[in-house]
Design a binder for these strands. Structure first.
Lengths: 162, 162
DNA sequence: TCAAGATTGATGCAGCTGCATTAAGTAAGT
DNA sequence: ACTTACTTAATGCAGCTGCATCAATCTTGA
């Protein structure tokens, strides 16, 4: 008798859930121990720092990070509270606004990349050859959205965008 | 110049985060649309139903599911509130207790497996050959904890245990 | 036997998430 | 110009998570 989801598919599902959870936890813990805020903050700061003149519309940020609207709204709140970004009014569209990264925001992003990249190396890089990492990318890509070109996406700094 | 985490490792990291998130979301949505509770409930009910005489110590459940103690405690609260499990006192150790699955609990677990297995098939099985699923398992296993034998773990019903 | 330490489970608090709704502004058709 | 529909962003509410702590009980070793 043939199973509907094969045992192989089910095993892959279990591993995908467990391993991601363990690796994410490990990386987040490393960042936290180094005294840094959560990864989502890094992602947002990275997107902002990459934007021309360091500012974006919240809607843009939302699309880049693939997180819901309300989540973006509150993340911006927190960044603004900590002085890492500022809200600016948008004169073209009075509903909207711009979010601009501040100098402390840029500095934090750079400092975090040090700890973040070390964590990626520790929990992924050191455990997989480059060739195997590519194989893993290929298999994962078949499961979901294309995440853009392998080489291009990680060209400068990596952002997860959960 | 060599990067500390290679672009390949970074790309794998990004995909691991994104793809897991998308696939989990998709599966959870399918379950929710079918009117079922979250996956964590299923995991707990499955563990309980597998236990001899359908009861376990919370500590056991905690170890099986790999979730923190307080999380287990509250999950049991919710199952008990919904009549899917009952707490029983433990006479050997008066600090402790037993949690026993109820008949409605067993029924729900079985019904959920229908929707759950369909979702795994839809989001994993249909996108990967069995051989590729095994390759994926192998690569993921190198990143983390061993999750037991591929064939054995998914023998009857699959549990993620985030 | 009894004090020190470990184990078991619950809970108050803060933060984050999703859902639904609201408010305000823009765009488009009539 | 005016109604209708869409877009942009914020927010109240409920639920879940992690952290720290607590209370109760068990275990160990002097």
């Amino acid at each position: 008798m043939k199973r509907k989801p094969s045992t192989e598919a089910t095993a892959a599902w279990i591993r995908l859930m467990r391993v991601q959870s363990r690796v994410l936890d490990a990386v987040e813990q490393d960042l936290k121990k180094a005294g840094f805020p959560p990864l989502a903050w890094y992602d947002a700061l990275l997107e902002l720092s990459r934007a021309p003149s360091g500012e974006m519309r919240p809607v843009e940020l939302e699309k880049q990070m693939l997180i819901p609207q309300y989540s973006t709204s509150r993340l911006i709140d927190r960044l603004v509270d900590e002085g890492l970004a500022v809200r600016r009014e948008c004169k073209m569209d009075k509903r909207g606004q711009f979010v601009e990264i501040t100098e402390p925001g840029r500095e934090l992003q750079k400092k975090m990349w040090g700890a973040y990249s070390a964590a990626i190396e520790k929990h992924i890089g050191s455990k997989l050859s480059d060739a195997d990492a590519l194989k893993l990318c290929g298999l994962l890509d078949r499961l979901g959205c294309s995440c853009g070109d392998v080489k291009a996406a990680a060209a400068k700094e990596g952002a997860p965008a959960r």
